[in-house]
Design a protein around this nucleic acid. Structure first.
Ligand code: FES
Ligand code: FES
Lengths: 139, 139
DNA sequence: ATAATTCCTATTAAATTAGTAGGGTTTAAA
DNA sequence: TTTAAACCCTACTAATTTAATAGGAATTAT
């Protein structure tokens, strides 16, 4: 079980954005340099973050991105969700009555994985972007 | 972030083993049929489970596998760990002072991921195999 | 003997992830 | 009005990982 870069980068970039926020837009080039993330990859992520209304963009020279809400109003779950890095623990269709074993009942571990999913989502929901950038930070 | 089949199958198979335990060894063929998991794949998993002393094997005709300990003494973390499906949330070397960003300090999100790892491991540590197979089961 | 079974390694196929590429559009500022 | 910095968007490719298959050896009850 591995955390992939998409979610990791998204959170890193948002934390960077929050840390260096100064009212003016921050360009992806800056973030790319500071966090060592490929610019083009960042662009892809920020498209999604923008679609989910977590950041807004300013085009043209001197442009960049700005947080739409304050870091205290952004949960990590929002970020993770925006880039489609939700945890997927079930191998069966959630709605279907069929199990991952192709039988007519859910498998013996189904509820376990469902629980795990909640447990992990809970973690991301609990934490706000603020907590990553605060001086007296928890992280 | 996805739970892969290795950990999932390992837990399923161990739960199956616990459910159908009757003192006699249970063959992988049975488990394979009941849980719809490729026999050969199961074999690979059980080699590892055996190496970690979670099951013991009985070779030859009528052979199979038997749990070494009672389901109340086996934590899911033991199973997950046995098949190397531990969660890996960090992209940097844990011991190194260098960060995932190739800089000399850990990145802004490092402690967050470390926390997440603990959080998930905690989940698996908390739950015993017993809880998956009990009549009055939680799952 | 035979068939069922574990044991073990190697290989391949499939899927996913990570990253690159390339061209378009917008805009501040020289 | 030209230029350069930036966002915008899609497609493609490379790399890695996962899942599964293959094939045979060793063991043992019947
Ligand atoms: S995970 Fe849902 S039935 Fe197995
Ligand atoms: S994850 Fe450890 S430094 Fe970024």
């Amino acid at each position: 079980m591995k955390l992939t870069t998409k979610g990791r980068y998204a959170v890193m970039a948002m934390a960077d954005l929050a840390s260096y926020a100064n009212g003016k837009p921050i360009s992806l080039t800056e973030i790319s340099l500071r966090q060592n993330i490929s610019l083009s990859y960042l662009e892809q992520l920020f498209l999604k973050l923008k679609n989910k209304n977590l950041v807004k963009s300013v085009r043209g020279s001197n442009g960049g991105y700005i947080l739409v809400k304050s870091p205290s109003e952004i949960r990590l779950s929002n970020i993770i969700f925006a880039v489609n890095e939700n945890v997927k623990t079930l191998s069966c269709k959630k709605d279907s009555k069929k199990g991952c074993n192709h039988k007519s009942t859910k498998c013996i571990t189904h509820n376990l994985w469902a629980d795990l999913e909640e447990h992990i989502n809970g973690f991301f929901e609990k934490i706000k972007l603020e907590e990553l950038v605060n001086k007296d930070k928890r992280f």
